[in-house]
Design a protein around this nucleic acid. Structure first.
Length: 856
RNA sequence: GCCGGGUUGGCGGAAUGGCAGACGCGAUGGUCUCAAACACCAUUGUCCGAAAGGGCGUGUGGGUUCGAAUCCCACACCCGGCACCA
């Protein structure tokens, strides 16, 4: 008989035939397969009615059940769900459904990250409003999630583009503004010429816009920033606590991104300038080798220092650098360039005058934007000195076989000071790098011309965007009062109604075109003022959404602190590595800032983070241009929800990529049919006591359930599925050629299978549960109770090794003594043969599993 | 260059100091069938052998250990993060 699971591609007459055959069979013997489509259609309305996954605040508050907060990254609504959503949802559901079965009250919410550029670009293309695109896609994705059997609590859903949500995004912005954690400054910023907006550092990848791939340039603009650097040290330190439960990859990425370095600030006096120039260096021990100073060409300092004579050359050079793209600037193998500014500084330890140059290899926004040039110890300085003909002094003795140019390794300090040089009261000669560092810092500190300091690569988060579809920044600019916060009771500042061509990128925010909206009176003085016309980076929306889920309908506050502190922090967060630094770092920053505002009692939002791999096809990322895309909807139609979910969970450990060309959803379906068939074979009545059942099968059932729990808690879902398959195989055997279908152990095993499968394949599990004579829903049936006594083996196989090779096996009692096991091993025929009369030097016995005989 | 992770059959992967290759995919042979599909059964790391049995085998080379895929050292390659960050 043909498989009955419906396959959309199937010819209709063929389908009729199979349907009628199924019908015939169910009247007579047991049907061999179930109809996937029919089962899906049957259970969805039942679950809608039962709402098994609705999280109840009271149950947790009263202490009746312990809480679990399970979060998975909410999607951006671009079209329908794709394979990646399918994977993360399937993995996430294993854990959340497991928690429900174990008796926890699980908060597992879902919503939409619905502000963002694709909707805006679509609106421009179609002369529409971004909301049309956004909310249409949300409806589609919502339906798909439901069909997918995802265990979300839909009563808590929201969209970040809803005014009821972004009202609180604005409210939180104002709290940070009050604390000085949100501020405006003018500085060179990353500019995407395609999207016509600024980008945060995190959104620039290899000099290109992370979103559209356009080459990023720099612009000098006044923009809003969040002071993430205020939390740099804490963001770094608390990674230590997260390390065991976050993936190494993400922790490492965050550490690298924060980029802490220890060094010193050193002051160089400049004749005729009141303030010295301070440089940042990680190698204060090399200060005697400082033969020049370099200042970032685009820093205000360079412009200020340059002499009239050098100004034309300087300005010409600066123009040249400004025209360069980030990509050109990032290439490290091009020759060093620069202009002598015509001024000199005093080396604080030698008293020598050194020239000050401007260059593009020094970054204006790192450290102080000025660097001491030590060509003997720094390769970049070496190259610069070589090109410009500046002197080179080595201050660390390189090893004899050293073949580089600048030497930056370990070694004794030399030339500090050089032979015959005037004494300056500091002598580093002969010291190790570490000792010389501290000695130099101590000396400078005493002189008042330097101090030890710590620097971070992390920059403040640039959050303003010159686009429409985001939360307006709730600030009013008043010629008298400056930046004035929109009063809380006037929130939300709603977006003006713009559409189509109004939204075209012009380099300034489209909101500026809505004159009625822009012109307001100042909340402080009542005079004419203008609204800020920028919108917030959408990462602001997602930096606090996990808090809103705890009290999603509260219209009096962003979140209810009691409920947030009760549910939070999230016990698990599942998502992709692409957000390893962006979203995860921002959310961590927000959580710490809100904790310090007294709004939260915890400082880390996500206690555990599981990063799921990608679904690829034929070794490559799925993409339209490669033509290797696989649609989730298509796979669901062909194999059914359960088989696709099972395939995604079973294919590999959650962190690894899944190559769709390597997996077999048809194999998954075959397995599910086998499992389902078991439920029709059971002949004992529901409620039959299992105690009298076949002991071997009972032991396997209990062992499987016990191990499955452990595997799930360790996020080893693929192995948990493998164990379930073994139980199905063993149960099949027991029915066909063992204890038979009427044995109570068979019922116990099949019920366990249904519950285990409810985590992965909810539809077929529900169907099995019903066929076993139970009421829905299997999702809340409860985890089977493991009988510890059944976990003890009657006998175990002991392995006997001779010369490290397995030469014999013995079935022994698990509590056999070492002496008995050794005696049995030495008496074993195969072992005796392998020994072949050789002298036994030593016998290692690890009862009851192993004996190793070492022969001389 | 610096930091992190990895490398196990034809393939996805199990095994985290004690039987390498669980489970599955694929493949081969068989049962059923007029035939095919479905389903079921068997075999499937590799080499020698008719078989019994044996040799070899977890990227490479060394080490620790009675015993190493697992721990240590070095190297190669792959993936990810940072990178003119001083």
């Amino acid at each position: 008989m043909r498989g009955v699971f419906s396959c959309h591609q199937q010819e209709s007459h063929e389908r009729e035939r199979t349907m009628s055959e199924t019908h015939e069979q169910t009247e007579g013997e047991q049907a061999a397969t179930y109809d996937v489509e029919a089962v899906q259609a049957k259970w969805q309305p039942v679950w809608d009615r039962l709402e098994p996954f609705r999280a109840d605040d009271e149950v947790v508050r009263s202490g009746e059940r312990e809480k679990r907060y399970a979060l998975t990254m909410f999607p951006y609504p671009s079209g329908d769900l794709h394979m990646g959503h399918g994977e993360v949802t399937a993995l996430h559901d294993v854990l959340t459904r497991y928690w429900w079965q174990r008796g926890y009250e699980v908060l597992n919410p879902m919503g939409w990250d619905s502000f963002g550029l694709p909707a805006e670009n679509a609106a421009i293309r179609n002369d529409a409003h971004p909301a049309d695109y956004t909310y249409g896609n949300i409806d589609t994705q919502f339906e798909s999630f439901r069909k997918y059997g995802a265990s979300f609590d839909w009563s808590r859903r929201f969209n970040t583009s809803d005014p009821e949500y972004y009202r609180w995004t604005q409210w939180l912005f104002l709290r940070l503004f009050e604390q000085g954690l949100a501020y405006r400054k003018k500085s060179p910023v990353n500019w995407c010429p395609n999207d016509q907006t600024v980008l945060a550092n995190e959104q620039v990848v290899d000099g290109a816009c992370e979103r559209c791939g356009a080459v990023v340039t720099k612009r000098e603009l006044t923009q809003w920033y969040f002071r993430t650097t205020a939390y740099a040290q804490e963001l770094l330190d608390s990674l230590d606590d997260l390390q065991p439960t976050w993936s190494d990859k993400v922790v490492n990425a965050q550490r690298n991104w924060i980029g802490r370095s220890e060094g010193a600030h050193v002051d160089f006096a400049v004749a005729g300038r009141e303030q010295p120039i301070t440089v940042y260096t990680t190698r204060p021990d090399t200060i005697f080798g400082t033969t020049f100073m370099v200042v970032a060409v685009d820093a205000a300092l360079a412009d200020e220092l340059v002499t009239d004579a050098q100004r034309p050359a300087f300005e010409a050079y600066r123009e040249e650098i400004r025209r360069e793209t980030e990509i050109e600037r990032l290439s490290t193998d091009r020759p060093k360039t620069g202009v002598d500014l015509g001024v000199t500084a005093t080396n604080p330890v030698t008293g020598e005058q050194i020239p000050i140059w401007a260059t593009d290899y020094v970054l204006a926004d790192y450290g102080t934007g000025a660097v001491m040039g030590v060509p003997g110890g720094d390769q970049r300085d070496f190259e610069f000195a070589t090109v410009m003909g500046l002197p080179i002094v080595r201050t660390t003795q390189p090893p004899a076989d050293f073949e580089g140019e600048a030497y930056s390794g370990e070694g004794a300090t030399i030339n500090s000071p050089a032979d015959g040089a005037a004494s300056v009261g500091l002598d580093l000669n002969g010291m190790s790098v570490a000792d010389a560092k501290s000695a130099a810092i101590a000396f400078l500190d005493e002189q008042g011309s330097g101090r030890g300091t710590v620097n971070f690569r992390l920059r403040d988060w640039l959050l303003s965007r010159q686009r429409y579809w985001g939360a307006p920044i709730p600030i009013i600019h008043c010629p008298v009062d400056g930046e004035v916060a929109v009063p809380d009771d006037q929130l939300p500042v709603e977006l003006p109604a713009l559409r189509g061509a109004d939204l075209k990128p012009k380099g300034v925010s489209p909101l500026g075109g809505a004159e009625e909206w822009v012109n307001v009176s100042c909340p402080t003085c009542g005079g004419p003022a203008k609204r800020d016309t920028d919108t917030m980076d959408t990462f602001v929306d997602s930096s606090w959404y996990f808090l809103r889920y705890c009290s999603p309908h509260d219209d009096s506050q962003a979140f209810d602190p009691d409920l947030v502190n009760m549910w939070g922090p999230c016990d698990i967060y599942i998502g992709g590595d692409e957000h390893a630094v962006l979203h995860l770092l921002y959310a961590r920053f927000f959580t710490k800032a809100l904790r310090d505002l007294g709004l939260l009692s915890f400082g880390e939002p996500f206690s555990a983070y599981l990063s799921q791999g990608k679904v690829i096809n034929n070794g490559r990322k799925m993409s339209k241009s490669l033509g290797n895309g696989v649609s989730l909807g298509g796979q669901l139609a062909e194999f059914g929800v359960d088989a696709v979910r099972l395939t995604l969970v079973f294919a590999s450990p959650p962190e690894d990529n899944i190559d769709w060309a390597d997996v077999s959803p048809s194999g998954s379906l075959k397995f599910l049919q086998r499992a389902w068939r078991l439920s029709g074979d059971v002949t004992s009545a529901p409620g039959t006591a299992p105690e009298a059942g076949d002991v071997a099968l009972r032991k396997l059932t209990h062992k499987t359930v016990h191990e499955a729990a452990d595997l799930i808690e360790k996020h080893r879902f693929n192995v948990m599925v493998a164990r379930t398959m073994e139980l199905v195989n063993a149960t099949r055997k027991a029915i066909d050629s063992g204890c038979g279908p009427a044995d109570p152990a068979v019922r116990e095993a099949v019920e366990a299978v249904a519950i285990l499968l409810s985590l992965v394949a909810p539809y077929v599990a529900e169907e099995m549960w019903e066929r076993l004579g139970h009421q829905p829903t299997v999702a809340r049936a409860g985890w089977p109770v493991v009988d510890e006594a059944l976990l003890v083996e009657d006998s175990v196989t002991a392995v006997v090794q001779v010369r490290g090779k397995v030469r014999g096996r013995l079935e022994v009692s698990p509590d056999i003594s070492e002496a008995d096991l050794e005696a049995a091993a030495l008496a074993d025929e195969a072992v005796v043969r392998a020994l072949d009369g050789a002298t036994i030097r030593k016998v290692i016995v690890k009862a009851p599993k192993l004996v190793n005989i070492v022969v001389g």
